[in-house]
Every structure is written in structure tokens, then in C-alpha cells.
Nucleic acid binder design. Structure first.
Lengths: 193, 193
DNA sequence: TTCATTCTAGAACAATCGATACAGAATCGA
DNA sequence: TCGATTCTGTATCGATTGTTCTAGAATGAA
């Protein structure tokens, strides 16, 4: 029943994600998205409804692929503070010198002017916060933190640090200095009372 | 010689700044800017050249008024760590629940996809970094830091934290949690070895 | 009062925006 | 082989974009 899809959805979402990261939601035109995905406008609207629908799918792809992939690779369960440290450092190794920003950071800023918080941004920030909290509780430093209050607070502090790093990377800041900042933060986190 | 300006430049720049903060550079149309400034398109182009020119002037206004004003008010020379702490906390008291974001943060992200770093963004980040560094050296914690290396590194770490806070505020994060994160950061900064 | 100059307002510009309509190609069940 | 359905590409839509043009209003110097 019906013609078969010719495009590879993964590849299309990857291309769309790429340009949304680079130019933002408003800055990425349908024509840009045509070029980036290989699809023609008609197919895009048929498959995803509208621009917002394609963005939503691309953001989902980012969440699944880039975000969860990065967490799994650098800070899997059990990796503790060292995993988090490597997760942070990995932000500096992004290709294109940060011209592809973090979609979460970029969209938190771009959609922040609207009415309520963007649900997908909230979900992504939530995943990061939860991951930070979990790895923190694995550290001996947080052994006496039975109810996890301290881990919660530190997770929020780290989340802000994380987002700020991405802002500075995208702003063209010196990577060596940022790496030093990360090392300082985690060295101090390991020797905390 | 020639007709006198009828508009108040300060008020015009304030209105333009307001909407650039809220909707971003791309998201603010000339018609939006007409409404926000009270000027008609013709006058805008006569006075500022083009949209980028108006933005540049508005960013300058932000730098002079909001940024330098906030520093002077909360973290003037001599105010040390306590000044910085109040500077950070003041970010939480922004009106409109952060729907007017920090122009520096927003533009670092929005223009970050382009070729080089935006010079005005760089200058604003530089002012923040320098301010952090100066106040840090006033703290007894940094007494033994003769060459200022430690202050430099901490300033970068604080700058990332600062930008991250603004991302989370704009993302709709809970302010009480962010306040706690700020207090934690500075409490620990005060008791550092 | 001229006159050159500067500012304002409004209409209009080409270009681009997101989105839609439509025709043909491809598929599977009947 | 039909026919209902789904996908693709092209052409095009009205709306909006940033910008320019132009006519007129206001100024100070001559």
C-alpha cells in the first residue's frame, strides 16, 4: 500500500540536525534544509508536517544520538567523577571549532524568549542533570550524602558550568583555558570535604 | 544646518535592545523594531544605516548601561568575593522571568555559527572576565597568587558558570536551585586553600 | 526669504520566507 | 491489471523580510 520511502530517515535527520545546530531554528530556511537533507520541500512537508515537525524530529535525533551517545561513551554508569570529567573534556573536541553548537544550549537560548520552556529542551537538560547526579553519588566524596541533597545541588552547579562551557566554545573562547577550567573544577570536586 | 532629531537616542536604543534580547537578532524584524523604538523604517535606516547598525548601537547601549551598570552596582572595585556573589545573585532578579535574556549570552550563541567570533561579544566577555579576575585578587584566598595565574583560571571557570546560569534562567530552570548553586560556588570559593 | 542640508514618514522594492497544490512515479492488495 | 494509497518533485502561493525611494517638514546659514 503506497510508494516506498526513498530517503534514509537517519541521514535526513542528521543533515537537518547539522544545519539547525549551525544556524539555529530561525536561521535555517526550508531551502537550506532541502540542501542539507537531500529532500525536496514537498517531501519534507509530507514526511514531517512542517518546519517545526522536522526540527522536533531532528532534536529527537540529537537527544538519542549525540547526547545519549556521549553520555554512554564517556560517563556510563559506574564511571563516577572521572566519567564526568571526560564528558566535559569531550566538549572541547567538537569538530568545526564549535560552529556546530550544542542543540540544547542553542535552543534554550533561542526559544527562551517565548512563553513557556521548550519541553524537549527541558527533557535534555533533565537527562544531563540526572546523569550528573548519578555519577556524583558514585564518588567517595558523596558517601555521607544519604538523601542526595548535596548531589542535587552539585548537579545543578555542574549543569550551569556545562552550559556555560558550550556558550564560551561557541563564542570562540580559548580551548586550552577552558580545559584548565574543567580540570580545576573536577580536581576540586575530588578533594571536597 | 538641517532638521533636528526628534527622537531620544537613549530611548530608541533601549527599545531596540529590549526586543533584540527577547527575540534574538534574526527574530527581530524591522517592523518589530519600528514598534519597539517608535521610529519608522525610513528614520531607522537614515540614523543607523541598516539592521546590523541598529543592533550594533543597541549592543553598545547594553554594554554601557546594563553590563557596566550591573558591575558598578554589585561588584565595584574593592567589593571582592562578596561583590561577585551579589553580581551573580542579581542575575536571578531579572524581570520577565528571563524572557529578556543576556544579550551577550544570546549573541555568543546566535552568532557562534558564523566565521569568526563577534567582536562585541568578545569585548563583553572580556569585561566580565577582567572584572572577575580583579575581584578575585582582592580576596584573601588569592593572597599567595602573585602572578595571578590562579585568579585567571578561576575567572574563566566563573565566566563559564555565569554564562551557564543565564542559559538555565532563559531555559526556565528553577531559580531557587540556581540560587543555591551560586551560594555553594561562592561558599566554596571563600574557603578554598 | 532663500537655500542647502538633515530628518521623518510612507509607499514600494526585489528577494526570500514557510507552506500548499498538483501531477506523476512507485508500491501492494485485490 | 487495476485501483487505492503513499511518496517525490516542481511550481507556485501569499506573507514577510531587509532595504530603498521619494516627497515633504524642519532647521541654520547666507
Amino acid at each position: 500500500m503506497g510508494r516506498t520511502r526513498e530517503f534514509d530517515e537517519e541521514a535526513v535527520l542528521k543533515g537537518a540536525m547539522h544545519i539547525f545546530r549551525k544556524r539555529g531554528y530561525q536561521g535555517a530556511s526550508i531551502r537550506d534544509l532541502e540542501e542539507a537533507t537531500g529532500l525536496k520541500g514537498g517531501s519534507i512537508y509530507h514526511a514531517f508536517g512542517d518546519k517545526a515537525g522536522l526540527f522536533d524530529a531532528a532534536f529527537g535525533h540529537y537527544h538519542r544520538t549525540v547526547l545519549e551517545g556521549r553520555i554512554e561513551r564517556f560517563a556510563p554508569p559506574g564511571s563516577g567523577l572521572q566519567g564526568l570529567r571526560e564528558l566535559f573534556v569531550s566538549l572541547l573536541h567538537e569538530p568545526d571549532n564549535g560552529s556546530l553548537g550544542c542543540l540544547i544550549t542553542n535552543m534554550a537560548v533561542e526559544f527562551g524568549g517565548g512563553a513557556g520552556p521548550h519541553p524537549r529542551v527541558e527533557a535534555a537538560l533533565g537527562l544531563l542533570r540526572t546523569t550528573f547526579r548519578s555519577r556524583l553519588t558514585e564518588a567517595p566524596t558523596f558517601a555521607g550524602d544519604a538523601d542526595g541533597t548535596k548531589a542535587d545541588r552539585t548537579a545543578t552547579r555542574l549543569l550551569a558550568f556545562y552550559q556555560g562551557l558550550l556558550v564560551l566554545i561557541r563564542g570562540g573562547d580559548d580551548k586550552a583555558g577552558l580545559r584548565q577550567a574543567i580540570e580545576d573544577e573536577f580536581n576540586q570536586l575530588e578533594t571536597m570535604s
